[in-house]
Amino acid sequence: MALEDSHVRRAAHLARIAVSDDQASGFVEDLSRILDMVDQLQGVNTDGVAPLAHPLDATQRLRADEVTETNQRDTFQRCAPAVENGLYLVPRVVE
C-alpha cells in the first residue's frame, strides 16, 4: 500500500506528534516500506489459524482486589507544569 503525505499528517495529528514538512516525506517512505511488509504477510494463507492476541503463550494472572497504593500526590505532582487545589491544570478543553 502506498502512503501519501496526508496519511502521515493525519496519523501524526491523532498521536499529537509534531512532524515538520521535511520529516513527513521521510516518514512516508519509511512507513510505506513497513506496510509493504504487511502486504507480504497478508499473502500468507491463514485459513484455520486463530488470530493471535499476544505473542506470549501465556494467560493473564489476576491480582486480589486490595488497596495497596497510598496517596503520593505531592510526589507525582512535582513533575506537573501546573497544579492547583490538588488538580492538574491543562490548557483549556471544551467540547
Binding site: D65, V67, T68, E69
Partner: peptide
C-alpha cells in the same frame, strides 16, 4: 475496592488526585 489495573482505592469523594 481497588481499580481494575492498579491497587489504588476506588472510594468516592476523596481529595482530588489522592
Amino acid at each position: 475496592h481497588s481499580k481494575i489495573f492498579s491497587g489504588a482505592s476506588t472510594a468516592f469523594g476523596a481529595e482530588p488526585n489522592s
